[in-house]
Every structure is written in structure tokens, then in C-alpha cells.
């Protein structure tokens, strides 16, 4: 009870802090924030990414939306574990479970089966390179195959890499935005390569244009 209450309070404070620091506003360009089950896929440059998406979702959608996060980072017993497990109710995947028969994605598909919407980073890891977007991991295709009925909503998080650059632990206040695109569905007979290209293009299409230098 006390844990639940403090988790709610921490969640509200984290969202408030995200707003103060980044003034984050959503652009619902390709869809509206509807109360239906969805998988939001986004580019990943910072530990604060899922917080930004969660912050711009309406309250009713926040409660049913769970970030998919790495067990080794967000699943511990300390503060990160509290935030990961209790505050954001993250679906924790074990990236190191490489043994055959141990499918890291199973917990994700289970969570969708239980009715949750997801915040999912298909690059699989934070992008700390100069590349705009890392190659997407095939887990997204397998998720779409398992649940072809669920809308996959591409979302582009802009500027978060500058708020918390690699190796820094304190965020600097800069404006960020989250742009949501047109939902994707796996088409009947669509193969992995075609679907992954489509998902990648959908993400890149949302990126704000580079300003001329």
C-alpha cells in the first residue's frame, strides 16, 4: 500500500520534472491518443526516453502503458529497481538470456497478452553513436508476428540526447518533443525485411528536419 502510494507520487514527480526540464509536448501527427492497446516504438538515446513518452500520454493511457526495459539496468534492488519495477511497472527483459529455449521476448508478449500497451525501443540499446538510428532488432518483427492485431505506433523523441549526453548524470534543460506517426500493422504475408524497413522508415520520417548550419 505504502509502496504503491510512494510509487504513484514518484511517478508524478518524475513526469513533472521531465516537463520542467524539457517542456516536452506531444505532436500527434499520425494518430490520436486513443484508449486502445498499442505498442509505441521509439528511438533510444537516453535513460530518460521512456519517461518522456509516458509524460506526454494522457493520464488514462499512462496507467496501462508499460515500458520495456533491460533487467540488468532497471531490475536491481536499489533506486533504479524501485523506479523500474514499482514506479513504471516496466516489463523487464533479460538481454543476457541467450540460452536456447529461453526467449527474452516471451515476457513482452505475455504483457501484451495481459492487455498492456508498451513503450518499446526496437534498437535494443541506447544509441550513443553519431548514427541517427541504429539497426532495428528483429524482436519487433517477432512481437508483430505474435500479435498482428496490435497497432505499432512509431514515435520520435527529439533532443533528449542533448539533455543527458552520454556519460553525464545530470540533465540540462532543453526543449524536447515526441512526434507520433501513423500506426503500423504487420501485413499478411509481409516478410521480416520488408516490415523492418517499413518500421525504420516510419520512425525516420518523424524526425524533425535538421536545421541548416
Amino acid at each position: 500500500m505504502l509502496t504503491r502510494l510512494s510509487a504513484r507520487l514518484v511517478a508524478m514527480s518524475v513526469a513533472g520534472l521531465a516537463r520542467v526540464l524539457t517542456g516536452v509536448l506531444p505532436n500527434w501527427r499520425g494518430c490520436l491518443p486513443e484508449a486502445r492497446q498499442r505498442v509505441y516504438i521509439a528511438n533510444h538515446t537516453s535513460h530518460g526516453d521512456f519517461v518522456l513518452i509516458w509524460t506526454v500520454l494522457p493520464h488514462a493511457l499512462r496507467r496501462q502503458t508499460r515500458p520495456v526495459a533491460a533487467l540488468d539496468y532497471w531490475g536491481g534492488s536499489g533506486v533504479r529497481g524501485f523506479i523500474g519495477r514499482e514506479v513504471f511497472n516496466a516489463v523487464l527483459i533479460d538481454r543476457k538470456a541467450a540460452a536456447p529455449g529461453q526467449d527474452a521476448l516471451a515476457v513482452v508478449i505475455d504483457a501484451v497478452g495481459a492487455g498492456a500497451s508498451l513503450i518499446y525501443f526496437p534498437e535494443g540499446t541506447r544509441n550513443t553513436t553519431d548514427e541517427v538510428l541504429l539497426p532495428l532488432k528483429s524482436g519487433l518483427y517477432r512481437l508483430a508476428q505474435a500479435r498482428p492485431d496490435i497497432e505499432i505506433v512509431p514515435a520520435w523523441i527529439d533532443n533528449m540526447a542533448r539533455v543527458m549526453p552520454k556519460g553525464e548524470f545530470l540533465p540540462v534543460p532543453l526543449l524536447c518533443s515526441v512526434t507520433f506517426g501513423t500506426p503500423l500493422l504487420l501485413q499478411p504475408g509481409e516478410d521480416k525485411a520488408a516490415f523492418m524497413t517499413r518500421a525504420r522508415d516510419a520512425l525516420l520520417a518523424l524526425k524533425p528536419e535538421e536545421r541548416e548550419r
Binding site: 517542456g23 534543460p173 532543453l174
Partner: peptide, 19 residues
């Protein structure tokens, strides 16, 4: 200032100056 800095080109090396 948040709006102003957003539109300038900052680099990782500016982090502490920005803070």
C-alpha cells in the same frame, strides 16, 4: 534560456557550462 539554448549548437563539452 531553455528555448535559446535549444536552438544553439551545443556539444557534450558544454554540459557543465550549461548546468
Amino acid at each position: 534560456l531553455r528555448e535559446f539554448v535549444t536552438l544553439t549548437d551545443t556539444r557534450r563539452g558544454d554540459h557543465w557550462a550549461l548546468m
